[in-house]
Amino acid sequence: MKGRRLEAMLWVLALLVLVLGWQRWRRAEPDADAPPSALQATPPEPRAVPRARLAAAGRAVVGGNPFRLDRAPAPIGFNQPGAMMPGMPAPYVPPPPPRPQLAVTGIVGPPWQAVMEGIPGREGTSVVVRRGDVFGDLRIRDVTRTTVVVSAPDTTWRLTVRRWQ
C-alpha cells in the first residue's frame, strides 16, 4: 500500500512540474526583433588608399623583420646548407658504433684454430674460428700459433692469447 501511495505522489509531482513549465512557456515574451533599418543597412565602402602609400608600408614591413625580436635581418641566411649562426653549437654528429671487445682464449692446431670471445651476435659464448670465417663485418684473416688477425671494414686487430694471472 505504501508503494502505491509513493507512486501516486510522484505522478502528481510530475504533472505539476509539467503544468508549471507549460504556463511559464506561454507567458514568456518573444525576443526583440532588430529594427528593420539595421537589417537593410550596407557596410560602408572601404576607404581608398593610394598605391604608393601601400607600397611604402609593404617595404617597411618586409625590411623591418616583424617576426624577429630585434627587428633586424638574421646574420646568416636560413636557406644556406651547412650555415651556422654565430654562437650556436656545432651540429650533432653521432659517435661511431662501439667496436667489439675481442679476446683470444686459446689457439690449437695445426691446422690452427682459435677460441675467441666477444664475437658480435654471439656474446657470452666462446666461438671456435678458422682462417676465412666471417661473422657479420668481421673476417678472420689468419690464425697462427701465437696470433689471430681479424679485420673489419675500418680496422684490423692482431690478437694474442689472453694470459691469466
Rank of each mutant, 00 (worst) to 15 (best):
E123L: 13
V161G: 01
V19T: 10
P73V: 02
P36F: 00
P111H: 05
R145V: 08
L69A: 14
P153F: 01
M88F: 12
S151M: 02
L102A: 04
L69T: 09
Q113G: 13
P110Q: 10
P50T: 07
P86M: 08
L20D: 04
Q113K: 15
T105R: 15
G3Y: 10
T156N: 00
V19K: 04
F135H: 14
Q23E: 14
A28Q: 14
P94H: 03
P46M: 06
R68Y: 08
E45D: 14
T144F: 07
W157T: 05
W25H: 10
P46D: 07
G132C: 04
G124R: 06
M85I: 00
R145Y: 07
P30N: 05
I119V: 15
G63H: 04
M85S: 07
D137Q: 12
K2R: 13
G106T: 03
S126T: 11
V61K: 02
G77L: 11
R99Q: 12
R47H: 03
L39I: 04
L18K: 03
D133H: 13
P50G: 12
V127G: 01
A8W: 08
P153Q: 05
V134I: 14
L15E: 08
I119W: 00
M84A: 15
R26G: 02
P43T: 09
G58A: 15
V108K: 11
G77Y: 03
V93G: 00
L138Y: 01
P46Y: 01
P100D: 09
I140L: 05
V129M: 03
R47I: 13
G106P: 02
L138R: 00
P111Q: 09
A34P: 02
L54F: 04
P66I: 05
R71L: 04
P100I: 05
G77V: 02
V62T: 13
G106C: 01
R4N: 12
P95T: 02
R145D: 13
M84I: 07
V93M: 10
R71H: 15
W157Y: 15
P95D: 13
F78D: 11
T160D: 11
D70Q: 10
M9W: 12
A56W: 01
M116C: 06
V93Q: 13
P86E: 04
P111V: 14
T147S: 10
P98H: 03
V62K: 08
G109D: 01
T147H: 14
T42Q: 15
E7F: 13
R68N: 04
L15V: 12
T125H: 08
A8N: 08
M1P: 06
L15R: 03
L10H: 10
D31T: 06
G3L: 13
P120L: 05
D70N: 15
T155E: 09
G63F: 03
W11Q: 09
E29P: 00
V150Y: 02
D133T: 08
A56K: 10
A83R: 12
A52R: 09
V104E: 00
L20T: 06
Q80V: 15
T160W: 01
G106V: 09
P120M: 09
A52D: 14
V104Y: 02
V150C: 00
P95I: 03
Q165W: 06
V93L: 12
T42E: 14
R145A: 15
G136Q: 05
P66L: 09
T155H: 12
L54K: 11
V150T: 01
A74D: 11
A41S: 14
M84W: 06
